[in-house]
């Protein structure tokens, strides 16, 4: 089930030096809250993306610890200050310690 999970990232490819660039991300994930019951009345075990981490050229920008109150297919957006060209690396980790990452290049003109 967790194999078809694909992170999507939208960020401008070019930026001016020092520009604040908005990063928009979405990862398809059911974010099972652990509150729902299946047809037999059994609680569906919790399985959510619990961690998100962003680095630019290896330097940490921000990270998030998510709780089940975050919606399915979590959409997250934030800003990064871009001083030099580099690679924005985003990593999502779920409760099973499975993780997905994406790398996006931003060029400073």
């Amino acid at each position: 089930m967790s194999d078809d999970i694909k992170p999507r990232v939208r960020v401008q490819a070019k930026a001016k030096k020092g520009e604040l660039v908005e990063v928009k991300t979405l990862v398809t994930h059911p974010m099972e809250s652990g509150q729902r019951k299946d047809a037999d009345g059994k609680v569906v075990p919790r399985l959510i993306v619990s961690g998100f981490d962003a680095t630019f050229n290896g330097k940490p920008v921000m990270s998030i610890k998510l709780d089940p109150a975050v919606s399915a297919n979590p959409y997250l957006s934030f800003f990064v200050r871009v001083e030099d060209s580099g690679t924005l690396k985003l990593t999502w980790t779920d409760d099973n310690k499975q993780s997905w990452s994406s790398e996006t290049k931003i060029e400073v003109a």
Binding site: P60, V61, I64, D67, A69, V70, Y75, S77, R81
Partner: peptide
């Protein structure tokens, strides 16, 4: 059912704190 939604950590590299998310 639980009070927590999300906890963010930032460094100065973020440049600006304006985040979006979708909440249940």
């Amino acid at each position: 059912p639980n009070p927590g939604v999300a906890s963010y950590n930032f460094t100065p590299l973020a440049g600006k704190v304006e985040v979006q998310l979708r909440v249940r």
